[in-house]
Amino acid sequence: MTGPSNRWWWTIVAAGMAIVASGAAALLVGWWSAAGTVAAGTSGAAAAALVGVLRARQPPGPQSEERRPSGHLGYPCACAEPSRRRLLCGGAVAAALVAGAAAAVPLWSATKRGEARLRATSWRTGTRLVDDRNAPIRSDDLEPGAFSTAWPEGHGDDGNAQVVLIRLPPDRTVSGPGRPEWLAAGHVAYSKVCTHMGCPVGLYQARTELLVCPCHQATFDVLRGAKPIHGPAHRALPQLPLAIDGDGYLIATGDFPEPVGPGYWSRPS
């Protein structure tokens, strides 16, 4: 082999050993930051040495290599004649289609279609609203202007059922397309699952009475049925019908009137 002597390889081997050594040191010492700096320093030094050697021993001058004739430039299944190429390409496409179709069957069995659950949540007539500690919420727990997140009692794990519960100031109510008759003691509840992409719409701006989604800033008007007034959402947040039971706790009087969360092809409207 022409070219420089064996010293090259020693540099590389030494640098490699240095990296392995500092990696081992990192594992032993556990002071990760120092170890990282040591590793970075060692490999950097080795690289610098290599570049230095490279610079010191410039290649003897540009070398060259002939290219193949431009007609067949070495596709692995090189075939100059168009007819054979077409046959091969066609065959490849057909094989890929068959393989894809074969893979589709097991893949389909791996799906767990969630549509049924997107259509309905765990809210039933009379379900109490509970907070993040599973405590039922009384109609005088929230001051006007306060808000909280609520779940159906016994279904704190149903992410699709979560609602933003807002107690409006006394002089405010909800107008269309919201339903004022679904308010209870000034409380209004909207699905917390954004109708754009499903993020929790937990960003409540009091006084301006807006709900903003933290993901894409879809903005909903609390006083007009959580209608989207700005940003990428298209549908209003579904409103949960509320009432107060005999013991003074907030309850739902049914499920949301429409599916919660982001849209999809066969979403019933």
Partner: peptide, 13 residues
């Protein structure tokens, strides 16, 4: 207090 547009966090919350 809930200053500005920040909602109030009442003792129940």
């Amino acid at each position: 207090v809930g200053p500005g547009a920040m909602p109030v966090f009442t003792p129940a919350v």
